[in-house]
């Protein structure tokens, strides 16, 4: 089983990202479970959302303490939130940032990767909404999920032009991260 924690701020779509990841993983033939860190839905406040992905049906209902992967939507969160908390040594931390990974001095042995998701979102979607872009980056960085499945989940949730643009941005982020592996 792989456990993923998504950090963001209220309004950035962290919960939606976790849900889309669960939908996409299931489309990939896995079992999945997504849930929010309940009750903190205030715009701008630090929020977390979680996804579990497994080959077998998922029964565990506890929160995620030792994630395999962490996604950070907003690098300013690093000032107030221990985003690397519990992250496994062989895990990966993906940060939305235009800085190099080495810039981030975090207390973790996990691999740190960065992607300028905000730029991709502005260029392709036309809005600084990065949640779906980071899912593409996640697919590229980890190989845990096919980008097509993420694009499919996003198109289903956001039909029409919005979904199409998101799908393009997902592919772009996927390719960038694939290249860095």
């Amino acid at each position: 089983m792989k456990e993923i924690r998504i950090h963001g701020r209220g309004g950035q779509g962290s919960v939606t990202a976790a849900e889309l990841l669960a939908v996409a993983a299931f489309a990939d033939g896995k079992f999945s479970q997504a849930f929010p860190a309940f009750g903190v839905e205030r715009r701008g406040a630090p929020v977390q959302a979680f996804t579990r992905i497994s080959d077998a049906p998922i029964r565990l209902r506890s929160q995620i303490y030792k994630p395999d992967y962490v996604i950070v939507q907003d690098p300013t969160l690093l000032e107030s939130v221990d985003v690397a908390s519990g992250l496994k040594d062989d895990g990966t931390l993906i940060i939305n940032s235009d800085f190099d990974p080495e810039t981030f001095k975090l207390d973790t042995k996990a691999k740190i990767m960065t992607v300028n998701a905000t730029k991709i979102a502005l260029d392709i979607i036309g809005m600084p909404i990065v949640n779906t872009v980071l899912l593409g980056a996640f697919a590229g960085a980890t190989g845990e999920i096919r980008p097509e499945s993420i694009m499919g989940a996003v198109r289903e949730r956001f039909p029409g032009k919005v979904g199409e643009r998101n799908a393009q941005a997902i592919m772009k982020a996927y390719e960038m991260m694939e290249g860095q592996k």
Binding site: A22, V23, S32, Q33, F35, P36, F38, G39
Partner: peptide, 12 residues
């Protein structure tokens, strides 16, 4: 059903 744990979970 457990509030949030089941009411807000996404699963197959």
């Amino acid at each position: 059903m457990d509030g949030f744990i089941l009411s807000h979970v996404y699963e197959p």
